[in-house]
């Protein structure tokens, strides 16, 4: 009755409700994924902390899309 060993049987840290080590999670959700010129994309580590895309600023100039940020963000 030996069951199939699964990777999370290893004595690695199991933290949080989902059982995924936070550090591994941050490696992925912060630094990777398809970046599409978002109106706001944040990133840490060696990538700029906060970037408000030019597209957003250009489109927010028109009254069609009023800017939610009073000073137009950090740019």
């Amino acid at each position: 009755m030996t069951r199939e060993p699964v990777p999370w049987d290893t004595p690695g840290p199991l933290s949080g409700p989902i059982g995924v080590p936070l550090v591994d999670l941050l490696d992925r959700v912060l630094a990777t994924g398809v970046v599409v010129s978002g109106d706001l994309v944040i990133a840490i580590a060696d990538v700029p902390l906060v970037r408000v895309s030019l597209h957003a600023l250009l489109s927010s100039v028109s009254e069609r899309v009023p800017a939610p940020w009073p000073d137009g963000g950090p740019l």
Binding site: V20, G33, S60
Partner: peptide
């Protein structure tokens, strides 16, 4: 991070899904 990953994982459970990084926001 966990909320983001939870939704991404659920989306990818039944077929491929392209994850976007945390905090991809549009107006």
């Amino acid at each position: 991070a966990r909320s983001h990953n939870e939704v991404v994982s659920a989306s990818a459970a039944h077929g491929p899904a392209v994850p976007l990084p945390l905090a991809t926001l549009y107006l």
